[in-house]
Amino acid sequence: MLEVTKKLVELLDLSPIGDDHFQGDSEDLGFPNVFGGQVLGQALMAASRTVEGRLCHSLHAYFLRPGNHSMPIDYEVQRVRDGGSFSVRRVIARQDGKEILTGSMSFQGEEPGFEHQFDMPDAPEPESLKSEQELGRILAPHVPERFRETLTRDRPIEIRPVDPVNPLQPEKRPPQRQSWLRAQGPLPEDPVLHRCLLTYASDFHFLATSMQPHGLTFTSKNMQVASLDHAIWFHRDFRMDEWLLYDKDSPSTSGGRGFNRGNFYNRDGVLVASTTQEALIRKRS
């Protein structure tokens, strides 16, 4: 496991601070606020620590306030129900006594059942694509110096975009994006960790899908952009240290909000997880 990946695994390894209460550190990725995927991944880890013999199959969360990446985050888990087949947990994430995220997670034991899925869409092989870090090195000489470290930093999750957007010269495109991703280096045999890492990674480049038809990016002037909510459904087992295709689209943008959907496929074409997110996309006057 690479050192940068080890740090991410440690970031998700929360400290217990009381009955069903946990605390996690924050990381600075160069964004104004704490990365939403970090809060989601830690919230899922907190909930998972209170369930035995069952894995998360769905997560629904709302971002309430921007998080501060210079402060730790406290997670309170509420045991809503433990039924014969499912367990439900509610999680509240707080900083400085204020709620920044609330979510619910449902857990289920392994169970056979009917099977069907969408076919995996066409996509170039990941080996044929440049990584985000490589693309950042190409872009770095053309951006202000304060942004260069963010563009070229080592990443625990390697992302290789298909047909990447140039943030300095965005153009209007259909609301569809694809990228391959995987953790850097081998990971332990822990299905909870793999789910938490996918949850973390699922927030990268997601809401930007709904900005593409309008020729906008995070660097566009006078834009207020933020994730409002996030949902994940885990369908089948997977490994985050193997390539996964993240196929995303945005059916609608209206009322200052962009709606996004995504599917994760492994290299064998197996659909392993699905995501949705609504985001604030507001043009400041």
Rank of each mutant, 00 (worst) to 15 (best):
E115Y: 05
L207W: 10
H205P: 00
A208L: 14
R160H: 05
A208V: 13
T102V: 11
A123E: 00
V165C: 02
H205V: 02
A123S: 10
L193K: 09
S210V: 03
E115S: 10
V80M: 13
P164N: 01
P141K: 00
H142E: 04
E127A: 15
H214C: 00
M211L: 15
P121H: 03
K172H: 04
S85H: 14
L135N: 02
E125T: 06
E189M: 09
E132P: 00
M211P: 01
L187G: 11
E110M: 12
R177T: 12
Q212G: 02
S85W: 09
D163G: 02
F114W: 11
R182S: 08
A123Y: 01
L181E: 10
E149R: 06
D122P: 00
G185R: 12
L139H: 02
Q178R: 15
P156W: 13
Q212N: 01
P164K: 02
V143F: 01
S128T: 14
M120C: 08
M211E: 06
P175E: 11
A93Q: 07
D190A: 11
R173H: 07
G84C: 08
P124H: 05
D154S: 15
P161E: 04
E134Q: 15
R81D: 08
F204H: 14
H194F: 13
T217F: 06
H214N: 05
D190Y: 11
F86G: 00
P144Y: 04
P164M: 04
K98N: 10
K98I: 02
R195Y: 13
R137M: 08
Q133F: 02
G84Y: 12
W180T: 12
T152C: 09
Q178S: 14
S179F: 15
L101A: 03
G185I: 11
D96F: 05
P112L: 09
E99I: 04
L101V: 00
A140K: 03
P191Y: 13
T102R: 14
P141F: 05
E127S: 14
L198K: 08
L168V: 03
F206K: 06
V88R: 15
W180G: 08
L198V: 13
P186F: 12
T152Y: 02
Q212Y: 08
K130M: 13
P213A: 05
L181N: 06
L181D: 10
Q178E: 07
F118L: 04
V143Q: 05
P191F: 13
G83R: 09
E149L: 02
R173M: 11
S87C: 12
E111Q: 15
G185M: 10
D203Y: 13
T102K: 07
S210Q: 03
Q95H: 08
T209D: 04
Q178T: 04
T199I: 08
E158Y: 06
K130R: 14
F204D: 09
S85A: 14
L193P: 07
G136E: 02
S106G: 09
P186G: 07
L101W: 04
G83F: 07
E132I: 08
G109H: 11
L197M: 15
